[in-house]
Measured scan of single mutants.
Amino acid sequence: TRRLSELRVIDLRAELKKRNLDTGGNKSVLMERLKKAVKEEGQD
């Protein structure tokens, strides 16, 4: 898996959309949101 920081905004939005998460905001907001989601998934 590529590091989140290497993803483009369009990629971040696609990942968030797959998880039914909000896709609004700038790159840093999107990255934080996705990071949190990935962390929570890992705790399942």
Rank of each mutant, 00 (worst) to 15 (best):
L21E: 06
E6N: 15
R19T: 03
S28L: 11
R33I: 00
L21I: 03
L7V: 10
E32K: 05
N26S: 14
V38C: 07
V29R: 07
G24L: 10
K18Q: 12
V29E: 15
T1R: 08
L30C: 05
G42V: 11
R33T: 09
E32Y: 08
S5L: 07
I10E: 15
G42Y: 00
R3H: 12
T23W: 06
R19H: 01
V38R: 11
R8D: 13
G42Q: 13
K36V: 11
L21T: 05
K35Q: 13
D44P: 14
E6V: 06
K39T: 15
L16W: 00
K39R: 12
L12D: 01
R8G: 14
D11R: 00
R19V: 03
D11G: 02
E40F: 05
L16G: 05
E6S: 06
S28P: 11
L7S: 12
R8V: 05
M31K: 04
K35Y: 01
G42K: 15
K35A: 14
Q43M: 08
D11Q: 03
Q43G: 15
G25I: 00
E6G: 12
L16P: 06
A37M: 02
R19C: 01
R3W: 09
A14Y: 06
R8L: 04
R33H: 04
M31Y: 07
N20M: 06
G42S: 11
K27Q: 08
R19D: 03
Q43E: 10
A37H: 10
R3S: 13
G25T: 02
G24Q: 07
L30G: 08
V29I: 01
G42C: 03
R3K: 13
D22F: 07
V9E: 15
K27S: 08
K39Q: 08
T1V: 06
R3F: 09
R19E: 05
N26F: 01
K35N: 14
R19M: 01
K18T: 07
S28V: 11
E40V: 09
D11K: 00
K39A: 11
A14E: 14
D44I: 09
G24T: 13
E32Q: 07
S28W: 09
N26Q: 02
R33S: 07
S5C: 05
N26H: 01
E32F: 01
L21A: 06
K35C: 08
T23N: 00
L30E: 11
K27L: 07
E32N: 10
E15P: 00
R8I: 01
I10H: 10
G42F: 04
S28D: 12
T1G: 12
Q43N: 01
K18W: 04
N20C: 02
R33L: 01
G24P: 00
K18C: 04
E40M: 07
N26R: 09
R8Y: 02
R8N: 04
K27W: 06
R33Y: 01
E6R: 05
M31N: 04
L16T: 05
R3Q: 11
N26A: 12
T1M: 13
L34D: 14
K39S: 13
K39N: 11
R2D: 15
E6A: 05
L12H: 03
L4C: 01
A37F: 02
R3T: 14
Q43L: 12
M31W: 01
K18E: 10
V38S: 09
K18M: 06
Q43R: 12
D11W: 04
V38I: 08
L7E: 13
R19P: 01
K39H: 15
